[in-house]
């Protein structure tokens, strides 16, 4: 079963994402910010990371930088959650090695479609 790490400081977003992903047949790990996510990554290598940008302690783009620098995790696809279809965040994310983005608001269909795009069938 493919495993996905979701990182967001909003419990609402985490819970609903988790619900969608479980329905889509994925195993889910969680972190409330970049620091927690890195902690999770010490013992796991998920197939995908979905992260929010604006978070306390460590934001999503810094998390992304850290993932790309880690020998064990550098090739893990990372999707960035953006609230607006903000070009600048997407560009910044791409420059730092993001695989793609999911624009909020999202529903189950949209999330699973983007994940399929990145992970394949």
């Amino acid at each position: 079963m493919k495993q996905i790490l979701i990182v967001d400081d909003s419990r609402t977003v985490r819970d609903s994402l988790k619900f969608f992903l479980k329905e889509g047949g994925y195993d889910v790990l969680e972190g409330a910010d970049g620091v927690e996510a890195l902690k999770v990554l010490e013992t796991a290598r998920p197939n995908l990371i979905i992260t929010d940008v604006n978070m306390p302690n460590m934001d999503g783009l810094t998390l992304l930088e850290n993932v790309r620098k880690s020998p064990d995790h550098k090739f893990i696809p990372v999707l960035v959650l953006t609230t607006e279809s903000q070009q600048s965040i997407m560009e910044k994310g791409k420059a730092l090695g993001a695989t793609g983005w999911i624009v909020k608001p999202f529903d189950s269909q949209k999330v699973l479609a983007v994940i399929k795009k990145v992970l394949g069938g």
């Binding site: 790309r68 550098k74 090739f75 893990i76 696809p77 990372v78 791409k94 090695g97 993001a98 695989t99 399929k116 795009k117 990145v118 992970l119 394949g120 069938g121």
Partner: peptide
């Protein structure tokens, strides 16, 4: 590959 892109997908 360093952007986590899966070309087959």
């Amino acid at each position: 590959f360093f952007s986590g892109t899966n070309l087959i997908a």
